[in-house]
Design a protein around this nucleic acid. Structure first.
Length: 927
RNA sequence: GCGGAUGUGGCGUAAUUGGUAGCCGCGUUAGACUUAGGAUCUAAUGUCGAAAGGCGUGGGGGUUCGAGUCCCUUCAUCCGCACCA
């Protein structure tokens, strides 16, 4: 029988589904293993060959672990809420739920064809009420919690209320938006509304007026990681800063734990680095500066208190609250002009020109509390409102931005740190600020001569003693804005009484997403949910916003553990069994979004005692991108004539993308090209050797570049087993690599060659032998088992595929069709090519699925060698090789080698100075 | 500017530890079989050279008996971040 992959794959796909072979039980004596691939947003375009890369990699590992005796959880679901479905709904009027469901169906078909061993009984969709009930439930828990810095965990807000009632804010150390101070009496005298507003300062999910990234075209706010270079990631629309009442998550409370947790997990160094940078911890001091002649003070944050003697001016951000009060009358007009200008600049403009120095003098002076000197206070947009206190002490000698500012406005520059071994210099001659990471202090009174670290300590001691500041840790991380003015997302389970938000009762969850007549904002600018009829709870209005895209993905990996549990977020026993994700596979683009928020969300659930592990994803692997390989034709300018690649230098040409489906091996199919588009029907060609050769370039895989490869087409042509193996064969999993369809033929040949081992006779009948295998055959087998096991463990799948090829090549040469060899080989190949292996497994007489087989054990005895072929080199250059027994002593080897004719020839009568013998490696003779 | 990654044949890549550079596959070339070949099989294929042999892992330098691998330096490409005090 010929290898008929279509029949085979169809048959086993059905069998597997009918028999639920990939269903994992929550009760098992086996050790558990949880493999998770990031669930997809089901877009209308379907999958291209880049998408399944991670799924296949995860699937191979899941299958491998099953064979190794693990109970494997390998689920899949859909991140079903999102903007594209809603944009489509606005355009067409179709309900996003309808299009989403349609897309999900298409995805499911595509995934099934690839033979992915998902436990579909555990499927989750974030837009299902059963699912988002728990997203809402989690939000309410966040609302009802605050973060205690002393206990380093989230605590029920009632404990904080209790404390306020008895002691006010005395002795509290909790995460908050801004430090407040009140007595128990003041608290108790507050009205209910006032108390509720005060609590917002502490809740982990809180409502506040925040500066948001507002995207007018999308009609919604975006999170920081949804904005790049001042435009939205999705759609590329301009984004502006705007003050709006928004829900936020107090992720900043978890900054330190998010940082510490990174040390405990196996993630790539690059992703950890991105997260560390995003969290952006800096240790320094906050210092209060008096303002000359005024009662106001200004607080600044600095990482370098040791440079306080080099401060020659202060800078406020244009948004700073005290500007109005401190500005002198002479400067008022100029300051107002500058502030208005600075505030109206869009994010985009601000980021585009970071090199131009702008600013204005307020007319006011601050008093340096350490030196006692008066220094001018300036305003400039290089100081950011969102970081620290929005005010800095400028040390132009040792900060490049302060330096540029000082030079531009002719402000003094004082050197206060000198690198060790160097002397102080005249700052007038400087063209840039000087590095001050290491060195000793000068011009700095009581810290002169001290090393910078020591000096910083001394200064902090002093400011603490003077009661004008303290040492402080700052994080760049911002709280995450959690409201979106959109329809297709989770509704907030919150209602408003006298404009104060309250959570709905748990028993009334989920708050279902209502039907509305149009997906656009209302005339008066409210989000789409304002259109919903009876959008109330117990007579009070519900929130008009919905949750952002990352809400639903925060804890989906937990829901998979017990997807049918209606009583709790996660069934306790299920969580204790599955613990957390052992291997998580997905794109690196989620580094600061999903991978940070879900860690925080998980830590929060951990604090509540709902999950048993603090980190959700133990090991993370980021699959590389598959790039497209675009083909080009070259049209001579102003004509309809196309010139072949190697002739194009002789003409002025424009490169034009051409569909890769009408190009074979860079040779253009001219007839298909003429038919491709009407304007090419009469095209003429200048050929080389009778062919039209196309140019190529590696680009992003995209429709507009006509380089998209659809996996369905390849499954149709070669089968899923071949596609799976080829995607793995392309190169290291984590590396980006171009897609070249041509290479798939090689893997297809391998699969057919493997098939032929079982069908090697004139009629192509299935035929295997019960004969005992030879030593040589056993060696080939066990060498392969070893390589496959080792390489699979470290997810080096490209080399694993290569090992299979070598094995099948060698067995083909020996015409081996012995069951004792082919059966274990089939098992170890099955994670990679599950369909053909399952089929052959049954042909070999097995009744149960190969998924329940056991990974063969490596027999080292077959791998033992009695000899080793030594490369013999002279002065480091290999000249010949010599086969020697492995149990020869070093001295014997040396003697033997030197006595050979070849060695004598290369020595050419000279005496060797030194002979290096490394057993089972090399012999090197130096002369 | 900062951070991360990567540079090896015409192409994708291999070489867990410093020990025969180029495994496996694509492509190419030649041959066999065939009515046919975009099927299959065989052989060759880093580069210069007729050969002996020389040269070769982005460039330069170093450590070592020995370097793709370690150290210094430099260049290029890709990705992420971007006034973070």
């Amino acid at each position: 029988m010929d290898y008929n992959f279509k029949e085979i794959e169809k048959k086993w796909q059905q069998e597997w589904e009918q028999n639920d072979v990939y269903h994992a039980s929550n009760v098992s004596d086996k050790p558990k293993y949880y493999v998770l691939s990031m669930f997809p947003y089901p877009s209308g375009a379907g999958l291209h060959v880049g998408h399944p890369l991670g799924y296949i990699a995860g699937d191979i590992f899941a299958r491998y672990k099953r064979l190794k005796g693990f109970n494997v959880l390998h689920p899949m679901g859909y991140d079903a809420y999102g903007l594209p479905a809603e944009q489509y709904a606005i355009q067409t009027g179709q309900h996003p739920a309808v299009t989403t469901e349609k897309n999900i169906e298409r995805y499911r078909q595509q995934l099934d064809k690839l033979g992915l061993s998902f436990d579909w009984k555990r499927e989750v969709k974030t837009c299902n009420p059963d699912y988002y009930k728990w997203t809402q439930w989690g939000f309410i828990r966040l609302f009802n919690s605050y973060y205690c810095n002393k206990r380093k965990k989230a605590v029920d807000i009632t404990e904080l209320i209790q404390h306020f009632t008895q002691y006010g804010t005395q002795d509290i150390d909790v995460a908050c938006s801004k430090p407040l101070s009140f007595t128990a009496e003041e608290w108790n005298n507050k009205t209910e509304k006032e108390q509720q507003l005060t609590l917002m300062n502490y809740r982990l999910a809180y409502l506040s007026d925040s500066m948001v990234n507002w995207c007018p075209q999308l009609g919604t706010v975006l999170a920081n990681d949804e904005v790049i270079n001042g435009v939205s990631v999705r759609g590329g629309y301009p984004v502006e800063r705007k003050l709006m009442k928004q829900w936020s998550l107090r992720i900043t409370a978890y900054a330190q734990r998010l940082l510490d947790g990174l040390e405990t997990i196996q993630w790539s160094e690059s992703i950890k680095e991105v997260q560390r940078y995003w969290i952006g911890k800096s240790i320094g001091a906050s210092i209060w500066f008096d303002i000359v002649g005024q009662s106001e003070k200004m607080e600044i944050f600095t990482t370098r208190p040791d440079t306080v003697f080099g401060v020659t001016f202060m800078v406020l951000c244009p948004e700073h609250a005290i500007i109005e009060q401190i500005t002198t009358t002479e400067q008022k007009e100029e300051v107002e002009k500058y502030v208005t200008w600075a505030k109206n600049r869009s994010e985009r403009e601000r980021q585009a020109e970071t090199k131009t120095v702008t600013g204005v003098f307020t007319g006011a002076f601050a008093k340096n509390p350490i030196t006692g000197k008066n220094i001018p206070i300036w305003i400039s947009d290089y100081v950011l409102a969102g970081y620290g206190t929005g005010a800095i002490m400028a040390v132009p000698a040792h900060d490049s931005r302060d330096f540029a500012f000082a030079r531009h406005f002719k402000l003094p520059i004082i050197q206060v740190v000198v690198p060790n071994g160097q002397q102080e210099e005249n700052t007038d001659n400087w063209t840039e600020s000087k590095d001050s990471k290491d060195g000793y202090c000068v011009n700095s009174d009581f810290i002169n001569g001290l090393q910078v670290k020591e000096a910083a300590k001394k200064v902090v001691e002093k400011i603490v003693a003077m009661n004008i500041g303290k040492s402080q840790i700052n994080y760049r991380l911002r709280d995450a804005i959690f409201s979106r003015q959109r329809y297709w997302g989770e509704p907030f389970p919150m209602y408003y009484k006298d404009s104060v938000p309250y959570p709905v009762e748990d028993k009334d969850l989920p708050i279902l997403l209502p039907e509305i007549d149009s997906y656009l904002p209302t005339k008066d600018g409210n989000p789409p949910l304002a259109r919903a009829k009876n959008w109330t709870y117990k007579g009070y209005p519900l929130d008009f916003n919905t949750m952002p895209g990352f809400a639903g993905s925060n804890a989906y990996y937990l829901r998979y553990m017990s997807p049918d549990c209606h009583e709790a977020y996660i069934d306790k026993k299920a969580n204790e069994y599955w613990q957390n994700v052992d291997l998580y596979i997905g794109g690196a683009e989620h580094a600061t979004g999903h991978l940070l928020y879900s860690r925080m969300w998980n830590m929060f659930l951990y604090d509540l005692g709902i999950v048993c592990k603090e980190e959700p994803f133990h090991k993370l692997v980021n699959q590389g991108m598959i790039q497209g390989r675009s083909n080009f034709v070259y049209r001579i300018k102003g004509t309809n004539t196309f010139v072949s690649l190697n002739q194009k230098e002789n003409y002025p040409t424009d490169p034009i993308h051409v569909d890769i489906n009408i190009v074979n091996n860079d040779v253009l199919d001219i007839e298909k090209f003429k038919a491709w588009r009407p304007e090419f029907a009469n095209a003429e060609f200048i050929l080389e050797n009778g062919k039209y050769i196309c140019g190529y370039e590696i680009e992003k895989m995209s429709k507009s570049m006509y380089n998209v490869q659809n996996p369905d087409d390849l499954v149709e042509k070669y089968g899923a087993d071949t596609l799976r193996m080829y995607e793995m064969f392309l190169g290291p999993l984590e590396q980006s690599k171009p897609w070249d369809t041509k290479g798939i033929e090689g893997v297809f040949r391998f699969i057919k060659k493997f098939w032929k081992l079982f069908h090697n006779n004139p009629n192509f009948d299935f035929q295997i032998s019960k004969e005992k295998p030879s030593e040589q055959e056993l060696k080939i087998l066990h060498k392969t088992i070893k390589k496959v096991q080792e390489d699979t463990e470290r997810m080096s799948y490209n080399t694993t595929v290569s090992a299979f090829m070598i094995c099948v090549n060698e067995l083909s040469d020996l015409k081996c069709n012995k069951q004792e060899i082919l059966e274990p080989l089939t098992i170890i190949l099955s994670p990679f090519a599950p369909f053909i292996c399952e089929h052959l497994w049954h042909l070999m007489g097995h009744e149960t699925t190969i998924n329940y087989a056991t990974f063969p054990i490596i027999e080292e005895k077959y791998l033992q060698e009695s000899t080793y072929t030594y490369p013999i080199s002279f002065n480091g250059k290999t000249r010949f090789s010599l086969q020697l027994s492995i149990d020869m002593s070093v001295a014997d080897i040396e003697k033997h080698v030197l006595n050979t004719e070849d060695a004598q020839k290369w020595l050419n009568g000279q005496k060797p100075k030194k002979v290096i013998v490394v057993p089972k490696k090399i012999v090197n003779i130096v002369f």
